[in-house]
Amino acid sequence: MKILSDIAALVTGMWITWKHIFRRPVTIQYPEEKRTPYPRYRARIVLTRDPDGGERCVACQLCSGACPVDCITMQSAEDKDGRRYAEWFRINFSRCIFCGFCAEACPTLAIQMTPDFEICKRDIMDLVYEKEDLLIDGCGKSPDYNYYRHAGIGVTQPRGSGAEEKPPVDVRGLLP
């Protein structure tokens, strides 16, 4: 009979909730107990350096272009050796949604996300991080990569001596 199966369903439900009353709660008491996030956890953003100690960021604006909440702004500038770098670089963490698009868009692996998720501040203006707050002394993930060794414009090495480059062409050569 339908009514019997209905009552059985009610009783089954009640029985399941009854059992759960005696289960160990899954709650983690946050400030006292903390769990270790995985290394690829997406939290506070940093700017890394290449293995030679130079700033990886070339201020190409891809991260700010990819950012869905427009929390990244920067101004690029040119150094004496022709290196493109960020004159200033600002991430507004009060807007950031930690989606990781910026890190994915970054062609030089400069912008990376760290597992440090505790970045609350009393004053919201303190959440506006400038380049000096973001730049770290380290390579973060991918420690061996130096963008300028691969992009053929010659900043870290003379033109034509990069990783996949031939020496510059002699335009006046006559050989075929």
Partner: peptide, 10 residues
């Protein structure tokens, strides 16, 4: 409290 226990919370 009881609802929390039922839902495996504290």
């Amino acid at each position: 409290k009881v609802l929390a226990w039922i839902q495996d919370r504290k």
